[in-house]
Design a protein around this nucleic acid. Sequence first.
DNA 1: ACGAGATTGGAAAGTCAATTCCAATGCTTG
DNA 2: CAAGCATTGGAATTGACTTTCCAATCTCGT
Lengths: 219, 219
Amino acid sequence: MQTRGVETQSKAASTEGGRRTRDRILRAAAELMFKQGVAGTSIPDVQRHAQVSASQIYHYFGDKKGLTAAVIEYQSTVKLEQQRPLLDNLDSIDALREWCERAAVRLDAVRCAGGCEIGSLASELSDSDPSARLGLAKAFAEWQAAIESGLTRMRERGDLPPDEDVAALAVALLAAIQGGMLLSQVNQDATPYRRAVNVVIDHIADRVAAARAVRPTDH
Amino acid sequence: MQTRGVETQSKAASTEGGRRTRDRILRAAAELMFKQGVAGTSIPDVQRHAQVSASQIYHYFGDKKGLTAAVIEYQSTVKLEQQRPLLDNLDSIDALREWCERAAVRLDAVRCAGGCEIGSLASELSDSDPSARLGLAKAFAEWQAAIESGLTRMRERGDLPPDEDVAALAVALLAAIQGGMLLSQVNQDATPYRRAVNVVIDHIADRVAAARAVRPTDH
DNA sequence: ACGAGATTGGAAAGTCAATTCCAATGCTTG
DNA sequence: CAAGCATTGGAATTGACTTTCCAATCTCGT
């Protein structure tokens, strides 16, 4: 429980029905804000999509900013949870490739619409909504930490050179994912994403090879 | 002169004064849309900033979509022109580093606000405005072509292996730039951008080393 | 069953944006 | 200079959106 300033805070639901309503609103808002952007999503839009009245939205989320904040938190946790099994085991080249390819398949499925759920929100809100920016920074940090943790294990295991800057590699991979998704979104084709990500992973693979060269046969 | 559909087209100015007005509007709109996003920039905003009346904007650009399209074209050409001398000579590791570092310095100067002029527009408009998407895709394509062209020269010169996939490297660098700028924007710190870009350039440098290994002493 | 708080519907206020319109002024060309 | 088009100012229209408000209705513990 952090100290909050004047910011609006969303209220939890007390009853079962309320919980379902709140959830319905959140899901609808998340979907719409992803597909049309935050500014492009009006409260009436959310009302229609979630089949609720305006008062319900304002009851649970205070105002649009509160709803947006809730959507950010929702998307962050959802994306993290979806990838949890993979995210916790990014300690091999194959695992990295598998994880990134999973995202590529999703891109294909939606014709690259929307790009990254978090990235799109970040681009739209970072400069205008400081508290949103913090939430998004946290989401990216968790992602980065997951990658870095896997790379660190590889380094400890000797798959990467002892002096390898795994933090830089993690940032580079995250950037490749975000930038790749943006390029794919603009081109409506997942190829740029795949290329960008694969180049970075190739680079990591080269580092693995470099580590092997020093300790040729360890396992 | 391309075949246009129902799209609004911006009208050129006939008089000198008109030209200056049109320019003032364009510059103001570009700046505001960059700093606040397209949706966050209203026509009255542009009016105030450019010191013009509403009719002048509608006179020269038809409607907001037309103004947005003009801004996209404007930003594309401006960014390209700004970097022209560097862009045309991206045929060495040093040149690549210099070019990317130039952007990093700009990021520092604005505390990473706004990210990339083109990237931000791309993220906001790609899914909602098809013709904007095309314009942005073109801008990215020109950038990618410039990088690829430099890398191709390096390959022809023997600085890169003959079978090196320079298109993939170019996309990867562009993605690192875009993704890195996004991460830097969210974190209000240019470090992520620098790390992401440097990792990719390091990778290219490794490839140069690989090419040298095959033809040790050529020059 | 009763009362408090939770939840809901829907109207209404207030704001602001996009766009249109028309009248006025300026410039250019014959 | 006079007609004609370019340019400009500013009001008016229209519509949408955010948010508030109040009067129901519902739920739940006691």
